[in-house]
């Protein structure tokens, strides 16, 4: 699998709710701070992502978009 969670780092506030609800432990707080000083979320293991969009559903700050890899494309 190569699904993608696209992260808009400038909107992320490092709240950790996406990490809390991800069933596959795909996300983590990274080591790069955005312009407001928040250490923003990163995908640590993209191959595990099942594109369930739980992370995007719970993100209060619209920082996440989810894309599913299409077979044979």
């Amino acid at each position: 699998m190569n699904n993608l969670v696209k992260i808009n780092s400038e909107r992320c506030k490092s709240c950790g709710l996406c990490i809390h609800v991800c069933p596959k432990d795909v996300l983590t707080i990274g080591e790069i701070a955005n312009s407001k000083g928040y250490y923003t979320v990163e995908m640590k293991d993209q191959t595990m992502c099942i594109a369930c969009a739980f992370c995007a559903l719970i993100c209060p700050d619209l920082a996440l978009e989810v894309y599913r890899e299409e077979k044979g494309k």
């Binding site: 619209l62 978009e65 989810v66 894309y67």
Partner: peptide, 17 residues
Amino acid sequence: MKPIFTKTKGLTDRPFH
């Protein structure tokens, strides 16, 4: 890639406070 979740047009682009 197929979009599963993208930002709605019902909100502006302004980040929340």
